[in-house]
Amino acid sequence: METYRERLWPAPWVAVVALLAIPASLLTFAPVSVVAGAVVGTALAGGVILAAVLSAPTIIVAEGVLRAGSARVPLSLVGGTTAARGADARRMRGPELDARAFLVLRPDIDAVLRVDLTDPDDPAPYWVLSTRRPDDLAAAIRGAQSA
């Protein structure tokens, strides 16, 4: 039974930024063809938006397993969790980050959840996951572990 699911969709501003490819292409191709510039710009913007949507990872807590993107870890190997937002999240993603940590990060999502692992054979000491609902994800992990 699934207790938590979150798809890390890109923020709307990603599409706005991608759409800037249209005027940039129009300016670039204007000496050759305005139509070519519009076609190339539209194709570039559409490609960036499509890539951002298709690459959006999913975080799932179900059947005793935490899945983040293509990675999986049994909840029996999960220790504590730490939710962070703002400056704490930036430190967790940056200066305090262990190079061995497994990451599922989206630059447009501020909050993160650190998931500590207890498996001595796992080269990653913990996971850092972008999430819009870190407290809900932490509660789902704790709830599934106690079930």
Rank of each mutant, 00 (worst) to 15 (best):
E2T: 14
T3R: 15
R5Y: 03
R5K: 02
E6G: 04
E6L: 08
W9P: 00
A11N: 12
A11W: 11
P12R: 10
W13Q: 14
V16W: 13
V17R: 06
L20N: 11
L20S: 13
I22R: 01
P23T: 01
A24M: 12
F29Q: 05
F29C: 10
V32Q: 14
V32C: 11
V34S: 15
V35C: 01
G37Q: 03
G37S: 08
A38Y: 04
A38S: 05
G41H: 04
T42P: 02
A43L: 15
A43C: 11
A43T: 11
A43D: 08
L44V: 14
A45S: 02
G46S: 07
G46K: 05
G46T: 02
G47A: 11
A51W: 14
A51R: 12
A52F: 06
V53T: 10
S55L: 13
S55D: 13
A56I: 06
A56M: 00
P57D: 02
I60R: 15
A62D: 00
A62V: 04
E63T: 08
V65C: 10
L66A: 09
L66E: 06
L66Q: 08
R67G: 08
R67N: 07
A71F: 12
R72T: 12
R72S: 12
R72H: 13
T81P: 09
T82S: 15
A83D: 06
D88N: 13
R90F: 14
R91N: 13
G94M: 01
P95D: 13
P95S: 13
E96N: 15
D98N: 07
R100Y: 03
R100F: 04
F102H: 15
F102R: 15
L103G: 09
L103Y: 09
R106V: 05
P107F: 14
D108M: 04
D108P: 03
D110P: 06
D110F: 00
L113W: 07
V115S: 09
D116S: 11
D116P: 08
L117T: 00
T118R: 11
P120V: 08
D122Y: 04
A124K: 08
A124H: 00
P125W: 07
W127P: 07
W127K: 03
W127F: 05
L129A: 02
L129T: 00
L129K: 02
T131Q: 08
T131S: 09
R133M: 09
R133V: 06
D135F: 12
D135G: 11
D135S: 13
L137M: 04
A138Q: 01
A139P: 10
I141H: 07
G143E: 09
Q145P: 01
